[in-house]
């Protein structure tokens, strides 16, 4: 008597468990479409038309997550750029620790509603960044601001946070152990 009902309830439970995992891709698609969370637009070829009637101030912000002994800062605090213009900005990162570390930079653009108009064509955040102990390096980002940017947005902030990529760092440490001990 109870079996059909229980079967239906268990389907609800299974659907709800699956829904929980489905939220991961759904959330990321949602953020990509709406620009919520400061996710930036997709990389595109530079737009031909440069709108030189507008100047947008792009501010740079750099932070390092606790657990990664790096220094990290932008070369210049801000730039003034025309929409449609391909711009390169430089950040400088240095490994202050005693070991080789792999970091991953995560970008975010504020305000949220402008983030979809911010297109990076090349960025150090696209890949893992390895810095040997004591190494310093300049890291470039190239971007174009889409001329469709809402007219009332005059200031944008591009923010990066560097996180320790512990999986890649562990892999690196193992490789170097193997390299130093051929017997293994």
């Amino acid at each position: 008597m109870h079996t059909p009902l229980i079967r239906r309830i268990l389907w609800v439970c299974a659907a709800s468990f699956a829904f929980c995992f489905a939220l991961i891709p759904l959330y990321s698609i949602y953020c990509e479409i709406t620009g919520v969370n400061g996710k930036t637009g997709r990389a595109q070829a530079p737009v031909a038309a440069i709108d030189d009637t507008r100047l947008i101030e792009v501010q740079f912000d750099a932070a390092v997550n606790a657990g990664l002994p790096w220094s990290f800062r932008p070369k210049v605090p801000s730039m003034r750029v025309h929409p449609g213009q391909l711009v390169e900005a430089l950040f400088e990162a240095g490994n202050e620790g005693a070991t080789d570390l792999v970091g991953q930079a995560v970008p975010s653009v504020a305000p949220n509603r402008a983030s979809l108009y911010f297109n990076k064509t090349e960025c150090f955040c696209f890949t893992e960044q390895l810095l040997r102990a004591g190494e310093r390096r300049q890291m470039p980002v190239r971007f174009v601001i889409d001329p469709g940017l809402p007219a009332d947005v005059r200031v944008l902030t591009l923010s990066y946070t560097f996180y320790l990529n512990d999986i890649a760092t562990d892999r690196l440490a193992q490789h170097s152990v193997l390299a130093n001990n051929p017997a293994l």
Partner: peptide, 11 residues
């Protein structure tokens, strides 16, 4: 309960 407990379990 049947709608949200599996969500907690998943998370």
């Amino acid at each position: 309960l049947i709608a949200v407990m599996p969500v907690l379990a998943g998370s």
